[in-house]
Design a protein around this nucleic acid. Sequence first.
DNA 1: CGGCCAATTGACTGGCGTCAATAGGGGTGG
DNA 2: CCACCCCTATTGACGCCAGTCAATTGGCCG
Lengths: 273, 273
Amino acid sequence: MTQDQPTRLKAMRQMATQQAPTRQTTTRQMPAFVPCERCPLRRKAAFMQKDEKEVSFINGLKSAHLRFAAGSQLIQQGTEEPNLFTLFSGWAFRHKSLPDGNRQILSFLLPGDLAGLQATLQAEAEHGIDALTDVELCIFPRRKLLDVFEKAPALAYDLAWLGSREERMIDENLLSVGQRGAAERMVALILGLYRRAEHLDLVENQSFLFPLTKQHLADALGLSLVHASKTWSSLQRLNIFTYADRRLTLVNPRATERIASYFDRDWRVRPIL
Amino acid sequence: MTQDQPTRLKAMRQMATQQAPTRQTTTRQMPAFVPCERCPLRRKAAFMQKDEKEVSFINGLKSAHLRFAAGSQLIQQGTEEPNLFTLFSGWAFRHKSLPDGNRQILSFLLPGDLAGLQATLQAEAEHGIDALTDVELCIFPRRKLLDVFEKAPALAYDLAWLGSREERMIDENLLSVGQRGAAERMVALILGLYRRAEHLDLVENQSFLFPLTKQHLADALGLSLVHASKTWSSLQRLNIFTYADRRLTLVNPRATERIASYFDRDWRVRPIL
DNA sequence: CGGCCAATTGACTGGCGTCAATAGGGGTGG
DNA sequence: CCACCCCTATTGACGCCAGTCAATTGGCCG
């Protein structure tokens, strides 16, 4: 604004990331197609249990089951995306960038989360989605969407429900980025991911896989890389959590929630496509 | 975080606002019921034109047409809300607060916008909605929602579409708050509102009603009241816009867009309930 | 071994928050 | 009709949180 040209050259990082594996260059191996009727994910307690008929209808929508390597661009900002997908395994994140290269991570995706709804109902994606770890996706072509609304109203309702859940999570992130200090913000993010992982039975002994780099943290929290790193260290010094082997262990989740003014959302079972 | 008790006592402001007109105390006058078939709003070019049958179906959903005074709480954070509504006239905003009283404005509502979708698909609202000006609402009881999905798939699709539109706007706000500087942020917000107003034929000579107080600006942008005020003044000194009589005039919208890295979204006609 | 990348840490800077004093408008009551 | 209050806004002084710059380390890989 004041200084126009000498923009914060975080753009460099962006360039670097750019040449990271893109969709094309990605090893897109061919795992076995997992039919929804035998999907281990949807059997988890976190998800709504549907009757056979509905599950097989969903299976009819599913056009492929793909695997991508960590770092792959699953959806590219500014392109038209003909599919939506449910994350079958792994982590991913939605993000949006400014022309100067600054990137904001909008939300994280965990197994069972549906992605591309926004992009799908609109014409083209205004955000990108990248794989944070190796991932597997259940692909649904978006042209079948209208069918869903016409032939399976209950499913359509689920779709809308998932969209609204996603929006609530972004609301929370916006609240965080706008109103919490750096440390509180980071704790709130970690707690949110912890609770979601917990709900998917991904937590053992208050410890879970935490694949974010410092750069991801910074981009999600609206902090600089350096400050994110410092905040991270200070939280460890405060004995909020420990980190080893890509696994993060919360020392005292409930006490930590108070510190960050974190509030548990309602964790009712949710639909899964 | 570091200092727990001496929280930023912006809470005071909150208390003050609290005793402002609440839903109950609000003058909730009884304007004439506007049947959807004769709704002047939905005729605007911004909205999808529907056939008679669908419009009368929508009218069947509409249970009331209410007016609220500026400052009224339309939906209260943490309560169960049995209705959703379309904003028929006036401005409103969604917001979410931390226990220390800090408030984040999540998005603004202009005529034709649907509100309460998130709150409605879930059990209870995790955010509040306040009237920014005097408003009129078209009320739809949420228990009729399932009906919509079962009997009017096209309408259900519209609903989902509107939800996804809302999410895109929040994405943009999150990007702004997380990655733009104070001045860019403010310009981006103003431009966004300007374009939306323009689309509703609410702009004349690059000037439109701008009912936000400095406090609203601060809360929407994640800035302090004081800094928001200073940023506002500096933008005027830079001759970005002028302000008089609650009306804001953009001196050069297109040039201003470049300053703020603002990008026009796609302005296709959208559904309205 | 050398290059690349994520991460850490210190020193310095600057943007934004906080405190505080002041001004102006609108409503209300003496 | 003016006094008084409350609320919104403005402006300056000061301080701190977070950004920037830069040097260093350690892991991974060719």
